[in-house]
Design a protein around this nucleic acid. Sequence first.
DNA 1: TCCAAGTTCTACAACGTTGCAAACAAGCCT
DNA 2: AGGCTTGTTTGCAACGTTGTAGAACTTGGA
Lengths: 393, 393
Amino acid sequence: MTPPAPPTGRHRPPRLRDVAELAGVSIKTVSNVVNDYPHVKPETRERVQAAIAQVGYRPQVAAQQLRTGSSGMITLALPSLTFTYFSDIAQEFIEAAQRRRLTIIVHTTEGGPEAERTVLQGFERVLGDGVIFNPLHLWEEELARMDHTSQPTVFIGEHLPEALPRGSDYVRIDNEAASFDATSHLIAQGRTRLGFLGAITSPHGEQPHSSGTLRRAGFKRALREHGMDPASAVLQEVRDWHRQDGFVGMAALLERMPDVDGVVCANDDLAIGVLARLRRLGRRVPDDVAVIGYDDTPDAPFTSPSLSTISPDKQQLAATVLDLIAERIAGYDGPPRTVDVPYTLVTRDSTAVGRRAQTTSEPTSVDPIVSDRPDSETTAPDPSAVDLEELPR
Amino acid sequence: MTPPAPPTGRHRPPRLRDVAELAGVSIKTVSNVVNDYPHVKPETRERVQAAIAQVGYRPQVAAQQLRTGSSGMITLALPSLTFTYFSDIAQEFIEAAQRRRLTIIVHTTEGGPEAERTVLQGFERVLGDGVIFNPLHLWEEELARMDHTSQPTVFIGEHLPEALPRGSDYVRIDNEAASFDATSHLIAQGRTRLGFLGAITSPHGEQPHSSGTLRRAGFKRALREHGMDPASAVLQEVRDWHRQDGFVGMAALLERMPDVDGVVCANDDLAIGVLARLRRLGRRVPDDVAVIGYDDTPDAPFTSPSLSTISPDKQQLAATVLDLIAERIAGYDGPPRTVDVPYTLVTRDSTAVGRRAQTTSEPTSVDPIVSDRPDSETTAPDPSAVDLEELPR
DNA sequence: TCCAAGTTCTACAACGTTGCAAACAAGCCT
DNA sequence: AGGCTTGTTTGCAACGTTGTAGAACTTGGA
């Protein structure tokens, strides 16, 4: 009887058995030491620990997962890390997970709806303990049709159905309210000829884009509630969410509304493209046109001029999501829960009022208007408005 | 005798056994179908496939890994996704891995050397089949001291020792040569008062920063080889690699060399900070000062003016790295290999010559100088210099 | 001295999968 | 018909880990 050949050329990592033999105890005792089981004689524990160190033992997740049913791995499925917003989100999740001794598997769904369906179906293999999923193209009805998820799932993003599938939760930023705030800010600064620039139809063409729709709705509501005619504003649709789309879309918007004096962009990348277009045309920001973005990417303080934007609390988003999914993994099987995380409105130069355009503009400290909720405006420090002479971080 | 309780409240995913019972065959036959073993009667195969679809069977990676010793998971350890360069890299790896049906676990080492040591020691648990590791703070000697890695490893980045640990390979961009090219480009454009801006000492303070040192060396060599005195140039050290550091560092550089007319930045983020500083001071780019970066982040075409930079071929980097690590995982145990991947010099407005400063500048098509190697300058299309009216991607 | 009540340690089985070897079936040749 | 080859299917064992149950040891009180 030949033992099965080792799968690869390199030698296998040490096992509990190797430690046990070296320490002269049973495998289970080593396991007990590794798992901090209390009833181990201090002397034995020490001897085992020495053996562990000597052979360099590390537990094998695969075997633990097989035995216990959980691996400490969670899949994070995002559209693409090439959007600064998502790479920021990913970083927050990875850090938050590391703090909880969890491991994040990053999966991207650039392929569109098909790739997103794969996520929902649990991929082709059973891998981690759960999924954190930010769908972009899946439409409400498709999600609503599912009666349960294939594994513990927390959705992030927007425009999900009222009734989530069993086994899932939902953490979101109130996009409509945030966009309402952004628009109201422009109006408060005296802007009257407003445009909205965003992607409504998904680039994959199947359905309206969730966040885009909500942000546009907030824009329109702000106009209405401030006594302006929503029909007087220009809603400029763009194809996707990248800088290029903002650059191109702004040209189109200007054609329809040459005297626009305020633009609400559906994200910062679009706003950056908008700024580039305005610069090319010699329009001054904020003097001639005010521009506001959404996401507060690391670029925002460094655009020219620095960009006012909506800043979602990504850290709290990550923390909340991990809490929820941890509960699901631990066995909670109650009804879907929906949690809102806060955002703030960060005002920088691109929406300032009564300023001459400067040949230059730069990251500066401003007193940001911060609002957790549409109706509760307060002031708080803006983490991004550091004094740059102070060598931050 | 009670069977061990299921680990969580939710019911377990279907197993081979469930499929086998439904199809009326043995577990092994189902396994054979799943793994495309050829000697299965078409009729049986069909029946089994129907059963698989019916119960929604998906193989459990944990059990496969335990049995076969490999999981198809690879850890990617990067400093932080908040640097655009690294999030781009991560995206490339994730996509390339998905194409090969591999799974990427992203780990970040923001903590500095300590976190990087953890990576080398293989983390606390045996998880995937290998590691792709971009160290930032670990110094040469520490790596040189290791005689073998704890698992198949491919290093990316720079300044690794000549003699890598057994079991590892190394894929790099020739930073010194690239920086030489960037500097030569400025010189060719007629710039004579040059400055270099980069982080040399690691922010964690222990050792010289690898890439920074190499890029500075290329800068100095370019001066020498073009008959300029390296001592006449200003080497401005900055603390870290972020936009802020460029913003602050440029002020310091100007104090030491007020009439600087060309700045080589160690990465694009620094260059963006430099541009912001110059804008603030009313210096025109490129008329008064030319600025060149390194990385070709997605920001580069959208800065003001658009930024010339070194563009590493990230896609090929990812492909090469995955090839190497796949060989290691498959059992290759030969000596460490080092592979260079190409880069190109992308020229945009920030280093143009004989142009009046425009009130605006924007992403434009230029004829890029592209060089794979210092001595082989050729012309090729610049993927980032798309015609933005064409609604790219 | 013996037993009860800890405390510490161990044997066994099972998690889901696949490599191996062998069993079985079918077709073909002598 | 018997044996040989080829094609198809199966049983068994093992990967490394942990929960359960119980064995072995220690302590202390009667």
